[in-house]
């Protein structure tokens, strides 16, 4: 198979705005700009689960995910006045998440710590323990494979593959061009696939 033989793959476009939810978030933003603390409370309630899940995948953090969530909302509160509605609010929120995650990824990598040892403990155990165990194992593998990616590639990859964002939206969220996002994504897919393959082979050799 060669590059000339096959057409280039098409990336999934950005999904349309979620209508009512987005409109509600925008109304809340207007109220927050008018120093309405209750509006921020409502915004927090609406978005906190999504933010926590995103940060979890972006950083693979185990102990201080709570801190990252807190930091994200403090930064968001600081940044909301600069939001002019040029993008979806969700994109704006993901941009804040990306900034927090990038900062922590770089910081932790300087510390050279293994971040993924305790990932399963971070997971919320559902009603089916067996399924939860499989999910924990898969999550641990995914996060270990994500560790092989550079911070920027990881953000793009997680946003596309785990958060379901399209490349245009990711471009807005990370402040890069569409082509840059596409290039990072393709590169990340290659790295991730290789890392997963290596991890699975390693697990088979050392069960």
């Amino acid at each position: 198979m060669t590059a000339e033989a096959l057409p280039l793959p098409r990336l999934v476009p950005t999904p349309p705005p979620t209508g009512q939810v987005e409109a509600r978030l925008l109304r809340l933003v207007d109220r927050i700009k008018a120093d309405d603390a209750l509006a921020f409370e409502e915004l927090y309630r609406l978005t906190r689960d999504d933010v926590a899940r995103t940060l979890f995948h972006l950083t693979g953090r185990r102990n201080d995910l709570d801190d990252l969530v807190q930091e994200t909302y403090v930064r968001l509160l600081r940044a909301v006045p600069s939001f002019r509605g040029e993008s979806q609010f969700r994109t704006f929120l993901y941009r804040v998440c990306a900034n927090v995650a990038l900062m922590h990824l770089r910081w932790w990598r300087r510390r050279r710590e293994d971040l993924t040892d305790d990932v399963p403990e971070q997971l919320s155990i559902g009603p089916d323990p067996e399924r939860a165990a499989q999910q924990a194992q898969a999550t641990r593998l995914v996060h270990r494979a994500l560790e092989t990616l550079s911070a920027k590639k990881r953000v793009v990859f997680v946003y596309h593959e785990l958060c379901g964002m399209g490349p245009e939206e990711i471009a807005q969220a990370v402040g890069a061009s569409y082509n840059t996002v596409r290039s990072r994504l393709h590169s990340a897919r290659l790295d991730f696939t290789n890392a997963m393959k290596a991890l699975v082979q390693d697990a088979e050799v050392r069960p």
Binding site: F56, L65, L123, S124, Q135, A136, A138, T139, L162
Partner: peptide, 12 residues
Amino acid sequence: ALESAKAASPSI
């Protein structure tokens, strides 16, 4: 693996 991890939610 990604599909499975996508459904995982962190315990906070």
